[in-house]
């Protein structure tokens, strides 16, 4: 099947956008088996990892930043998630995957687990920053409360996200790989 370049790009873009909308819709939903200690999988983080795993630095950074803004829109905006997801995107993109990690079920889950832990740490530090910064007019939790909440949330979210990661990663990656193959065929 030969597609014109424009229609292929448009289809690829709309599938990508649709996957983001699906992730956003999944965020407030709680299905049986998707919840642990009231925490659900962080679908947007899985999306950012899936996107960044085969892409360059700038694309990953941009995606992390934009997706962080989207998540802010879905909840309170301070502290912003754009920072933590940007870091996740950049780190995932710069992993030496050819050397150490294969693209299989286990590795993707492991990457998501590690990235989830990193992103929660960044958010916890952001909360501490707001607590520590004097005169900001915003106070959230005290340090010890941040710490105890961080421990609960990080483990639950990292476990759930890594378990559900393949559900999102496989179809998305399959689609993007196909698109890339088509692109290569059409240019040669």
């Amino acid at each position: 099947m030969r597609w014109s370049k424009l229609s292929r790009k448009l289809t690829n873009g709309s599938v990508t956008l649709a996957s983001i909308v699906l992730c956003l819709l999944l965020l407030p939903a709680r299905f049986p088996g998707m919840e642990l200690l009231g925490v659900a999988p962080n679908w947007l983080l899985i999306w950012v990892v899936s996107w960044s795993i085969n892409r360059g630095f700038w694309q990953a950074a941009l995606a992390g930043w934009a997706i962080g803004f989207l998540q802010d829109g879905m909840s309170e905006q301070i502290p912003t998630r754009a920072l933590s997801l940007l870091i996740v995107g950049v780190l995932t993109a710069s992993l030496k995957k050819q050397k150490y990690v294969q693209e299989d079920f286990i590795s993707v889950s492991l990457i998501v687990f590690a990235m989830s832990a990193i992103s929660e740490t960044v958010v916890a530090l952001q909360f501490c920053w707001y607590t520590w910064r004097p005169g900001s007019g915003l106070t959230f939790m005290h340090f010890d409360e941040v710490w105890s909440y961080y421990q609960d949330v990080t483990l639950a979210s990292a476990l759930l996200s890594s378990l559900w990661a393949p559900v999102l990663y496989y179809p998305l990656n399959y689609w993007w790989r196909r698109m890339r193959l088509l692109e290569m065929n059409s240019t040669t």
Partner: peptide
């Protein structure tokens, strides 16, 4: 119809 979209916030 839904719960919090970000587990650091309770909504």
């Amino acid at each position: 119809i839904g719960r919090s979209a970000n587990h650091w916030w309770q909504s």
